[in-house]
Amino acid sequence: MSVLLDVSGLERRFAGARGMGDMIARRPRPVVHALSGVSLQVQDGETLGIVGESGCGKSTLARCMVRLIEPDAGRIVFDGQDVLALDGPARRGFNRAVQMVFQDPYASLNPRKTVHATLAEALRVHRIVPEAGIAARVLELLDLVQLPASAAGRHPHEFSGGQRQRIGIARALSVQPRLIIADEPVSALDVSVQAQIVNLFMDLQRRLGLTLVFITHDLRLVRHMAHRVAVMYLGRVVETGPVAEIFAAPRHPYTQALLRAVPQMTPRELRGEPAVSGELPSPLAPPPGCAFHPRCPVAEARCARELPALERRGGGWPVACLRAGG
């Protein structure tokens, strides 16, 4: 397998809100460290799951990867091209090759446009098919996401949540992308409908050879549909590798805690100490050293000083923990 998307050292900071008191005291605007050096690779044809809790930077990362947000530093290489240096026709080519599916399809679809108009627009802008072929291609796309042909003439509000997400997927597919980045695409859906969309993604991948980056907070979904996983904590990837191996034997203490905290379907009564104590530190002031050390059950003194690099450390996949492998 070859690497389709290679992200290295990605950084992105946002200016935080400044209160009245801060302004009077002339304190500088706080800075949110959303991404603090993210590196990961997406292999051609695979599904990479990106998991993490709120504030870990997974959505910022998704937006950087499609260049909806420009990173402050780092490199993104797609199919051998330096993405951040692209402009003109090359940039448009990249925009076509990498598409995004959002969590809330209702917010990302134009409510005044029919499904046909939404899909036809993308086909026209990118000149995917000649004008005469647009209607037929729209029907093909609807069929691909298992919506009836009659859906073309209707507006987004006439559909249920699951159907709207199908429209969002059809729009992403309309420009024949190689890579789809899906940011929490099923989080707003009920379990029964969620399963329909998950199956659709897996089916599309098989039929079209799509590469998929699936961003979610739900580890059960990652285990179900991803080949490899990247676990994020406070703006960094702390562990990445094959799903089956990491779920069986996680190496980073945060991954271990996360997996212990996921509700299992085997009935048992939760007793004793929680999987991990404490809460996510503020991204306004990330702890020095390993960002997980204040909550880590096995942290040592050096963990508060040294920033662990994401390395193999004697195991089969990279992990950013000073204690791993030693």
């Binding site: 379990v191 399963a195 998950v198 199956n199 897996m202 179900h224 549909m225 991803a226 799903v243 779920f247």
Partner: peptide
Amino acid sequence: AMPGTGAMPGTGATAETLIPI
């Protein structure tokens, strides 16, 4: 329809398909 309820969890994308409602 729930992911992770099958007999063989932990097999990544090779797992059985979910049965949606």
